[in-house]
């Protein structure tokens, strides 16, 4: 007769389902992006997912792990999806392939595969190509429909740019954050915001993309896939910084631009919440999220890069184990929580 340890029953949850739900929750964002910016991101996502699955399979084969067992956990696919969404829509194919395979091989499998990576794989891949190919990464953002309807590339145009090396110039333009960063050097904030790229609330395109990710994120919260701690702390951290330093309207970007442009919402709900590399204790999650929000603001406002989700997340990944060690919850029946790391042996 079967004698296994209790419990003998199990909830219907599984890692594959969790990952699949996260992937599905990105669909609103992907849909809006495709509608407003053309097929570039859609193609990127497909390409990144294919690359992620292929590299994952290859490395699993080399590591002599069972392919089916690990591929069906959907984590590689999720890494691919997140990278595809994060990369510029018109980035050449090799950038996507390079970023994805680096993420899977170096940031995930070499650390021992699922569950063992100290850094968010997608963001490691993103940071690699951002640092290595700054030109390709900043000139391949598509112009949103709202700004120039004729500039939105069709499917064939996107394919040509991404795979055949056609010039993206006809379709590309700076992102709002990028544009702001360039113009704020010579103009005041209010002057910058008069530029057509920032034309009107709910009119530009990036707002809609971020709102779509927010919607997806709320679904994740509702399904209890993620807890509220990290996204809320991150958005609050970012907002507080923005309000605190935003007293000088001529110097700094307004709160709405911080929250609803760039990768803010994608980062808050889909990237910072990657459980493997994030802090795990409830209070730790708050600190971790707030840290990302603050770093995000600091790098956007004072750093060399227009957006900074990848760097902010990676930097806080470093701190996650340390944060966990100092934020353990108080256990039932104990007066106070234990803090910090443990001495090797106490007698």
């Amino acid at each position: 007769m079967l004698t296994l340890s209790s419990p003998h029953t199990h909830g219907s949850n599984s890692t594959s389902k969790v990952m699949l739900t996260v992937i599905l929750a990105t669909l609103p964002g992907l849909l809006v992006t495709t509608l407003l910016f053309g097929y570039g991101t859609f193609i990127n996502v497909l390409l990144a997912v294919a690359t992620a699955m292929a590299t994952e399979a290859l490395v699993l084969k080399l590591r002599q792990r069972p392919l089916g067992f690990f591929l069906k956990d959907n984590t590689a696919a999720l890494t691919g999806v997140l990278l595809g969404l994060a990369l510029p829509p018109l980035a050449p194919w090799w950038i996507t392939v390079l970023a994805t395979s680096f993420a899977i091989v170096f940031a995930k499998q070499l650390y021992g595969g699922i569950g063992n990576n100290p850094f968010n794989p997608a963001m490691v891949g993103y940071a690699l190509v951002l640092v290595s190919f700054p030109l390709h990464m900043t000139t391949t953002w598509a112009v949103p429909m709202a700004v120039d309807n004729s500039a939105v590339p069709g499917l064939l145009d996107s394919v040509a740019v991404i795979f055949a090396g056609a010039s993206p110039d006809a379709f590309s333009g700076a992102t709002p954050l990028d544009a702001y960063k360039h113009m704020i050097d010579s103009q005041t904030s209010s002057e910058v915001l008069k530029n057509p790229i920032f034309s009107g609330w709910l009119n530009g395109g990036w707002e809609w993309v971020n709102l779509a990710y927010l919607a997806g994120g709320l679904v994740l919260l509702w399904r209890k896939i993620i807890s509220w701690h990290i996204p809320v702390a991150m958005l609050v951290g970012l907002s507080l910084c923005s309000l605190l330093f935003g007293w000088d309207e001529d110097m700094y970007a307004p709160l709405s631009l911080q929250l609803l442009s760039g990768a803010t919402m994608l980062g808050a709900f889909f990237i910072a919440t990657d459980p493997v590399s994030a802090a795990t204790t409830p209070r730790g999650k708050l600190i971790y999220g707030a840290g990302i929000g603050i770093l995000l603001y600091v790098i956007r406002a004072h750093g060399a890069y227009p957006d900074a989700v990848a760097f902010a997340v990676l930097l806080m990944n470093f701190a996650a184990p340390f944060i966990d060690a100092y934020t353990q919850p108080r256990t039932y029946g104990h007066k106070a929580a234990r803090r910090g790391l443990i001495a090797k042996s106490e007698k």
Partner: peptide, 14 residues
């Protein structure tokens, strides 16, 4: 006492 579980990814393949 119970021994540590042996099934799972640890005992696969290599």
């Amino acid at each position: 006492y119970w021994q540590a579980p042996t099934s799972g990814v640890e005992l696969i393949a290599s």
